[in-house]
Amino acid sequence: MRHGDQWVLIEGPFHPSSDANRDEITVFFPDFYDLGSSPALVGAKTYRLSTEELRKNCEAFLVHAPPTEAPVRKASWEEPLKEHFANALKITQDRIAKGEIQKSVPAVFARSRQTVTAPERAQMLLRLLEAPSTLYVYGLWQNGEGVLGATPEVLFDYSKGYLKTMALAGTCPKSEASSRESLLQDEKEMQEHLYVLEDLMSVLHPWGEVKTEGPKIVELPTLYHLKTDIEIRCKTKPEFFSLIKQLHPTPALGVAPRSAGYKWMAEFPGQEGRRGFGGPFAFIGKEEALCLVAIRNLQWNRNTSMIGSGCGVVAASELEREWRELYQKRLSVRKILGLDV
């Protein structure tokens, strides 16, 4: 994981940890729909490297690495079916019309029959060294499965008594920026953003006074997002695993209001193998913790790879516009990882 100007690398073997807030860094990456699906993990050794040190390590590894016969960077991708997303959009908007919910975030997945090899991970890491500071680079792999990506979204960041998070919702692909009004004047995107902001302020209020800054437009390599920064000076230090359960998922990836539940979205077509996409990806220490939202990533197992994307559906959502946004989000992953587009 990249944190500031340092890269934190944890070497296996990994073993489950039942202790919260321990001295060693604990990694927690469960399934989106089941926070109990995977234990927190502790590795054998932790390294903190500069960008240049990590670059030299990757380059040295690649000098002796055998070539990959079927590289995922040149893979052909089976794109998600538009009719599957149209079905999810209709179900969501029907529930909105009935007053059951205000918003949900369906996800779709492009899939490849090629997996990710160790040399390819090194090559992708070299690309990710150049990722802008607005993105958090993260990854975890073991036993033939893994994830690697660069997310713009933080579930929470706790350090020295301060809890920081963000409402990140409302999107405009750069390719459409000249033909659309500013996100700050876009009624649909602002409404989607406010659902997330209001939810977070409500959930976090018991921890202390909630201060916000925004909304503002943040620029990513291929997208613009609406973002409001949130900060609380906590009355007491959180128990980090409990905080994850309280916050996940925000309406940026789940459903507004929370009381409507979110696991019903698992019944949307095309959800096979979602695993941790959109879930928490946490690095937890005794006194500090950083929990990311696991989006903008490549996931793989021994036989296949997949890239997911999600979009917020509200009453005013339009199929074609949301379908283009979903594609642009997947395209951003392929570009930043150096996959053929």
Rank of each mutant, 00 (worst) to 15 (best):
R2Q: 11
V72S: 01
F109T: 07
P39N: 07
I25E: 01
V105Y: 02
C58P: 02
L41Q: 14
V108C: 12
V63N: 01
L49I: 03
A88C: 05
S112G: 04
Q114N: 15
N21A: 10
D34Q: 08
P106Y: 00
C58F: 09
I101A: 14
E59T: 01
P71H: 01
N57M: 09
L41N: 03
S17E: 14
P30G: 03
K90D: 13
S17N: 12
F85G: 00
D23H: 14
E52F: 13
Q102M: 08
R113M: 03
E59W: 02
A97K: 13
A118N: 10
R2E: 08
F85R: 00
K45D: 15
V27E: 13
R95Q: 14
R73T: 12
E53C: 11
E24N: 05
F14I: 03
G4K: 12
D31Q: 04
I101L: 15
A86Q: 13
Y33D: 01
D34I: 05
H84I: 04
H3Y: 04
E53F: 03
G36H: 11
D23P: 06
P16I: 06
Q114E: 15
E24G: 02
E100N: 07
Q93V: 00
P16C: 03
Q102V: 00
F109P: 05
W77Y: 07
E11P: 02
Y47D: 03
K45Y: 08
V116Y: 11
T92F: 02
A65V: 02
H84S: 11
K90A: 14
T51E: 15
A86C: 05
P71L: 09
K82H: 08
A122K: 01
N57I: 13
S38Q: 13
L89E: 07
K45S: 13
P106Q: 05
R111H: 14
W77I: 13
T46I: 11
P13V: 11
E120C: 05
P71A: 08
A20G: 10
F14R: 00
R95F: 00
S38P: 00
E83H: 12
S18D: 15
T51G: 15
V42L: 11
I10C: 11
V27D: 07
H84N: 12
H64I: 02
K90W: 09
N87Q: 15
L9F: 15
P71G: 08
E59A: 03
N21P: 02
D5H: 14
I25D: 09
E100S: 07
V108K: 12
V8E: 05
H15K: 08
L89N: 04
P30V: 14
S112D: 11
G43N: 09
Q102P: 00
E11N: 10
I91M: 06
L9N: 09
P16S: 08
E79T: 15
K56I: 10
L54D: 09
F14P: 02
R95T: 11
K45G: 06
R95D: 04
L35Q: 10
P30L: 03
A70M: 06
N21L: 05
A40L: 04
E24T: 01
